[in-house]
Amino acid sequence: MKINRTWMIGAFVLAGTGLTSLGATVATAEGMADSAAVKAQPHDTMTDMKQAPAKEAAAAMHMHHHDMTAGTMRSTVEYTLPAVTLVRDDGKAVSLVDELNDGRPVILTFIYTTCTTICPMVSQTFEELQGKLGADRDKVHLVSISIDPEQDTPARLRAYAARFDAGPEWQHYTGTVEASIAAQRAFNVYRGDKMNHTAVAFFRAAPGKPWLRIDGLATPAELLSAYHEVIASN
């Protein structure tokens, strides 16, 4: 019974991490072991046998998480801004073209307020970037555009912005579904479903200049470096 119980524990833990085949291997090895020899094992050895599958599963989960979050990809792209009207978090209807072409360097991303995974991490990174910008903070326009405008009213965007201590240079935008999709398509981030949203940030030194695109969960230090790189190339 001890062997069977160990196999069940190993299979249950490993199945939850996609390692069922490894659980089966462990079970086969234990099933072939002589039961008398197993009973003769010291307590510590038996404990190690039971903990091994869990440790392997935890290691696999850590590696999977690391692979999902590690690494960014950079590209320089020319984008044509769509002539759409968005609604700023202060409730004012504005032209996207005018907002992005006001002369300031732009750092832009896409979010939605009910997101519980990528968006909070991206917004927290922007929050930390604000502090790292130092004296340049008042010269930059940080932009977050909602990909869920039906839910993200200006009031909800203001509450979301407050969670991340957004200063006056960091503004959030919503609007109609059509306007949001047009903005997403213009920056090649439209995926048809907000649940397929991925982390991405865009940098531009001035109107008419190309955009630096960073796909992936960049750190605040990476974003700051990208900002300085774009400004230096202007």
Rank of each mutant, 00 (worst) to 15 (best):
residue 91 G to C: 02
residue 92 K to Y: 06
residue 94 V to N: 13
residue 95 S to R: 06
residue 97 V to H: 11
residue 98 D to L: 10
residue 98 D to H: 12
residue 100 L to R: 09
residue 101 N to C: 15
residue 102 D to R: 06
residue 104 R to C: 09
residue 104 R to V: 08
residue 106 V to Y: 11
residue 106 V to A: 08
residue 109 T to S: 09
residue 110 F to E: 04
residue 111 I to Q: 07
residue 113 T to G: 03
residue 116 T to Q: 15
residue 117 T to G: 15
residue 123 S to V: 02
residue 123 S to N: 14
residue 129 L to T: 03
residue 129 L to P: 06
residue 132 K to I: 06
residue 132 K to Q: 15
residue 135 A to E: 15
residue 135 A to V: 12
residue 136 D to F: 06
residue 141 H to T: 08
residue 142 L to N: 01
residue 143 V to P: 03
residue 145 I to Q: 05
residue 145 I to L: 08
residue 145 I to W: 07
residue 148 D to G: 05
residue 150 E to N: 06
residue 151 Q to P: 05
residue 151 Q to Y: 06
residue 152 D to N: 07
residue 153 T to S: 02
residue 154 P to N: 01
residue 157 L to H: 02
residue 160 Y to G: 00
residue 160 Y to A: 02
residue 161 A to P: 04
residue 162 A to L: 01
residue 164 F to Q: 05
residue 166 A to C: 06
residue 169 E to M: 07
residue 170 W to A: 05
residue 173 Y to E: 10
residue 174 T to L: 00
residue 174 T to D: 00
residue 175 G to R: 08
residue 177 V to F: 13
residue 178 E to C: 05
residue 182 A to N: 13
residue 183 A to T: 15
residue 184 Q to P: 07
residue 186 A to P: 12
residue 186 A to F: 11
residue 189 V to T: 03
residue 191 R to W: 04
residue 193 D to R: 05
residue 194 K to E: 08
residue 196 N to L: 12
residue 197 H to Q: 05
residue 198 T to D: 12
residue 200 V to E: 04
residue 201 A to D: 13
residue 202 F to M: 02
residue 203 F to E: 01
residue 203 F to K: 03
residue 205 A to C: 13
residue 205 A to Q: 09
residue 210 P to A: 12
residue 211 W to I: 12
residue 211 W to E: 14
residue 212 L to A: 11
residue 213 R to I: 11
residue 213 R to Y: 11
residue 214 I to F: 04
residue 214 I to W: 00
residue 216 G to R: 14
residue 217 L to F: 14
residue 218 A to I: 09
